[in-house]
Nucleic acid binder design. Structure first.
Lengths: 119, 119
DNA sequence: CGCAGACATAGACGAACATCAATGTCCTAC
DNA sequence: GTAGGACATTGATGTTCGTCTATGTCTGCG
């Protein structure tokens, strides 16, 4: 449902703000960025991101990810959905498997917002 | 109480991991970094960080910050406590006022973990 | 001393969240 | 077409979180 309307992904909104330390965020900006950060701010999802990103080919299916945790399959599926809806990963269904892939641009926007601007 | 034991601040632990996309985080690493991200992942706290950081002199007191929100004073105080315990801001009591100041190194570590490594 | 102001703490409450078991949907293979 | 496997959705449950009101602590001043 939200897929058909994906004009701009949530994670891209982080690119719309200058770095945290440059000038005050407006309430609106903060409310756009916070959910993306919240999606990352969970130990399971942080690890999922790093597992997907560092995988050969940059992608992984749920079956791969399940094996890395002591959590049920629906729980992993739920976490990947949160990351996807935040615009942090892309979904790609190929046959029976669903492959996830991180969106480097989304992570870069977040990093630029939080961290030091590129010198 | 936690002040007397501050050997290493939580936010510093982000500096202990290579970037998300470089290699998988261990469960332990993820559980260390996630709370720091969680401290940032709230629209009020995000805005508080940017307000403090972009202030002249890089510091602000609660009284300054209260004025920017429609929230009660204890609520702002609570949010600043969360940011402080995460190692993202420093406290400095001078007379009746308490001044907060962001820790640039903490933000930089987070940014480096999340965003692209410096090319 | 005693009062007033700046900030913190405590306790309560509703909303949001992480997890699970059960079930649903879709694809492939026989 | 039927069976099985991969993943998603649903509904329930315990926990965490954001906010408030009420109260406490400390500082400066008269």
């Amino acid at each position: 449902m939200s897929n058909s309307l994906t004009v701009i992904s949530p994670a891209e909104t982080a690119a719309c703000c200058s770095p945290l330390t440059a000038q005050p965020l407006s309430m609106e900006q903060a409310e756009q960025v916070a959910p993306v950060l919240k999606a990352l701010a969970d130990p399971v999802r942080l690890r999922l991101m790093s597992l997907v990103a560092s995988r050969d080919g940059g992608e992984a299916c749920i079956c791969d990810l399940n094996a890395a945790f002591d959590l049920s399959q629906p729980t992993i599926s739920h976490h990947m959905k949160v990351l996807h809806e935040a615009g942090l990963v892309d979904r790609d269904k190929r046959g029976v498997w669903v492959y996830y892939r991180v969106r480097p641009q989304a992570l870069a926007s977040l990093g630029a917002l939080i961290g030091v601007p590129p010198q």
